[in-house]
């Protein structure tokens, strides 16, 4: 299987100090990696590093396929409707192969809310809209930062389902979580525990 995403001894430093110990990983299609670690251990930083938003302070990160990143904020504009947000996402990624807006919205349980401004959605619904963005513009690698946060049980199950489908289609995913044990497909996922480097002294 082709490697889609790899990191070699990659780390990031903030104010001159490494945020976590150097990470090595390689991810091919059909694989999911769950990043675990305590609060403040650098899970978000690692995902942003893998996404290319941050540049490694040392080591390297190589992306062999397009990636999508879903962070704490769903990256949607509150003043645009759900549909307009999805439309933007599709145009921005120049993707023609994704689900249509209404299908994507139905898939994430937001059927019928297409014309509502994203501002009026609840936190959980915003996360669902973020997931819909992944569906309208498909990419090989998903990087999901705390995808279960602020979702109800049904929503968490939805994340598991979407991840299973994505991995089943030979996609790759990295997700961080600190509570829920993800149930992806037949349990084909690996876990990476990261440790924040204790500050000196």
């Amino acid at each position: 299987m082709r490697i889609l995403l790899e990191a070699k001894q990659a780390t990031f430093s903030r104010a001159g100090e490494a945020v976590f110990r150097p990470v090595d990983l390689g991810l091919s299609g059909g694989e999911a990696l769950v990043v675990r670690g305590a609060n403040g251990s650098g899970k978000t930083t690692l995902l942003r590093l893998l996404a290319g938003i941050l540049r490694p302070a040392s080591g390297e990160v190589t992306r062999h396929a397009p990636v999508a990143f879903l962070g704490h904020h769903a990256a949607v504009k509150g003043d645009l409707s759900c549909r307009e947000n999805l439309e933007f996402k599709r145009r921005f990624s120049a993707s023609a192969s994704g689900l249509s807006d209404s299908r994507a919205l139905a898939r994430v349980g937001l059927a019928g809310l297409g014309l509502r401004p994203a501002r009026s959605l609840s936190a959980g619904q915003k996360r669902r809209l973020g997931l819909a963005c992944l569906l309208v513009a498909p990419t090989a690698v998903w990087l999901l930062d705390e995808p279960y946060a602020s979702l109800d049980d049904e929503g968490c199950a939805l994340v598991d389902e979407l991840l299973s489908e994505h991995v089943g289609r030979d996609g790759a995913a990295v997700l961080s979580t600190h509570q829920r044990q993800p149930r992806i497909g037949d349990g084909r996922h690996r876990t990476l525990h990261i440790e924040g480097r204790e500050r000196l002294e």
Binding site: R48, A51, G52, I53, R63, P66, V67, A68, F69, G71, H72, H73, A74, A75, V76, K77, G78, F92, T139
Partner: peptide
């Protein structure tokens, strides 16, 4: 910056 759309400009480095 606040709604997370800015960082999307750098995602994937493409």
């Amino acid at each position: 910056l606040e709604d997370g759309t800015l960082e999307q400009w750098w995602v994937g480095g493409t």
